[in-house]
Each structure stands twice: as C-alpha cells, then as structure tokens.
C-alpha cells in the first residue's frame, strides 16, 4: 500500500516535470523528445489505473505517432529556415560585391 503510494507520487512528479519542461524549454527538438517521454509515462499511469487498453493506444498513437508527426514537422521547418538563411547570405555577398 505504502509502496504503491510512493510509486504514484514518483510517477506523477516525473509526469508533471516532463510536461512542464516539454512546454517551457527553449529548444523545440528537446521539447518534442520530452513530450514523447511524457506520453510513454502517461501510458505507464494508465496501466497503474487499470486501463491497459488505453495504455496500448497511448503508447502507440499518443506518444509514438504524435512524436513522429512533430519531429517531421520540425525538420521541415528547420530545413526551410536553413535554406532561407543560405539564400540570404548569398544575396548579401552578391550585393557587397556589386557595391
């Protein structure tokens, strides 16, 4: 009983910490990875609360697939930004040469 209580409090603490860090860290890649960890911990909580069906869905969909979606979006945005920076840099050197 006491052991279960300790487990509950530890799990909830880690869950809340993961969520808070995922939402506030300035690095978006780290935020997404923390969110995936958060989803897996939530799946653990569902098992603890006797909801194994929900845990299966959460681990596969809520954490895994959502994570894949977020990572692919992030990479598209980062690549577009890198390309824009490159174009910008080449445009400025062109201008400097002309001037």
């Amino acid at each position: 009983m006491i052991l279960a209580g300790i487990f509950d409090i530890a799990l909830i603490t880690i869950l809340l910490a993961c969520a808070w860090l995922a939402l506030t860290t300035p690095d978006l890649l780290r935020a997404v990875v923390l969110f995936i960890a958060f989803g897996l911990l939530a799946a653990l909580a569902w098992v603890r609360l006797q909801a194994p069906d929900v845990a299966l869905a959460e681990a596969a969909v809520g954490s895994g697939l959502t994570g894949a979606l977020l990572l692919s979006t992030l990479s598209v945005m980062q690549r577009a930004e890198a390309r824009r920076k490159q174009e910008h840099a080449s445009a400025t050197t062109e201008e400097e040469r002309r001037a």
Partner: peptide, 15 residues
Amino acid sequence: RDLRVLEHHHDDDTA
C-alpha cells in the same frame, strides 16, 4: 534524411 537534419536550436523564446 528528413530526420537527420534535426538540430538543437534555441529557436523559441520562453523567458
């Protein structure tokens, strides 16, 4: 290749 370009950026202001 998509995922390989992922980098750590301080790309969001959360102060």
